[in-house]
């Protein structure tokens, strides 16, 4: 149990909770979108912290890499054994790269929707926008 890891997880939790709060409770449409951004950031931080290995190093083969490694049938597996057991966990990092782009995409769509909704209703308040529905 590494304290920095625990602190990082808790920060991620705070980000998620703050984002949820903004998304559910705030009236301003842009605040809601900021909340969505914060939730995405929080989940990303959780994933990154899963990948963190205390005392490990960046998952990038610098010194061990064989420039002459022939590309056949993974015959050099054992050469990377030491690297693999010391580098940080790389899979979650790749997932986060995907999720950041997903977050940016949904965010831009929501921003565009917010602009158009403002043009229709001349307000940023969700309460006024959705007045008289359901």
């Amino acid at each position: 149990m590494e304290p920095f890891q625990v602190g990082s997880f808790l920060t991620a939790g705070v980000l998620i909770v703050t984002g949820l709060w903004a998304l559910l409770m705030m009236d301003n449409i842009l605040k809601k979108i900021i909340g969505a951004n914060l939730i995405g950031d929080g989940v990303n931080l959780v994933l990154i912290t899963i990948g963190y290995r205390p005392g490990g190093f960046i998952p990038e083969v610098m010194h061990h890499f064989h420039a002459t490694a022939t590309p056949s049938s993974y015959s050099h597996l054992l050469e990377f054994g030491e690297f693999a057991s010391n580098a940080s966990y790389s899979l979650p990092f790749a997932l986060v790269l995907t999720n950041i782009v997903i977050g940016a995409s949904t965010l831009s769509v929501m921003l565009a929707l917010a602009v158009v909704l403002y043009n229709k209703y001349h307000t940023l308040s969700v309460h006024k926008m959705f007045e008289g529905e359901d």
Binding site: L20, I39, G40, M129
Partner: peptide
Amino acid sequence: FKAAFKYMIFGTISGASILL
């Protein structure tokens, strides 16, 4: 537009919960 916006907002929550 309003329906789509609601759908996207709650889609963010559900997406985040699936990913978490």
